[in-house]
């Protein structure tokens, strides 16, 4: 791409200063939002890290965590990441039906993840290990449920995009929206790497 644009009426020429410029800055702006979201998780991770030994006589990680279940959950989220990737590839290829199909599969994997997590929470609370039991459990629920809430809203967003895509087709705006959700979804998978490692695996190792 040349840096010297001929004096045309193309308004985008106004912004071109380097070889690459952003499209309305939407994706950069969304990226900045994700980075600030990352800080929320950093604070929750730090809180959990500080409080994860404060059991107040209650159950500890080894008694509560069911690693095979977490492995299934991790697999579901990882699979949903690659299927969203396939949806994006189809979006760039302009195949509307395929995009919606992959989004449905992704949302189902996401729903599986949330479902398993809710089952786990239900089980823990049934055993009397709710967030009120100890500082460890308060920080555990705050961190893991914040992530789960993000995934739930991601699924909601995905459903909205499925409807919009089926109605308006893969316009430039739709591709941009899909790209934003792509960043959001892969970002949540990255947070989950931190959760399953730091909370579950290292918790059982303690």
């Amino acid at each position: 791409m040349s840096t010297h644009h001929a004096p045309t009426l193309d308004p985008s020429g106004f912004y071109v200063t380097g070889e690459h410029h952003t499209e309305n800055g939407t994706l950069l702006g969304f990226w900045l939002y994700l980075m600030s979201d990352c800080l929320i998780f950093a604070v929750l991770f730090a809180t959990y890290g500080v409080l994860n030994g404060s059991y107040a006589g209650g159950p500890d990680q080894k008694m509560l965590f069911d690693l095979p279940l977490i492995a299934v959950n991790t697999a579901a989220l990882l699979l949903s990441s690659i299927t969203y990737g396939f949806a994006m590839l189809e979006a760039h290829r302009g195949r509307k039906g395929a995009v919606i199909a992959w989004l449905v599969i992704t949302a189902l994997f996401g729903a599986t993840f949330v479902g398993i997590e809710l089952t786990e929470f239900h089980h823990m609370i049934g055993e009397g290990a709710g967030p009120w039991r100890s500082a460890f459990l308060s920080s555990f629920f705050a961190l893991v449920a914040t992530h789960g809430l993000h995934v739930s809203f991601g699924i909601l967003w995905m459903i909205v995009l499925m409807v919009q895509t089926s109605k308006s087709g893969l316009t430039e705006q739709m591709t941009r929206r899909l790209s934003c959700l792509s960043l959001f979804w892969h970002f949540l998978d990255i947070i989950w790497i931190g959760v399953f490692t730091f909370v579950y695996l290292m918790g059982v190792l303690k």
């Binding site: 410029h21 499209e23 994706l27 590839l89 790209s179």
Partner: peptide
């Protein structure tokens, strides 16, 4: 890509 975002290939994914 043309959209300002670098989008991946099947191989990359």
């Amino acid at each position: 890509g043309h959209g300002g975002e670098a989008h991946g290939s099947l191989k990359g994914y």
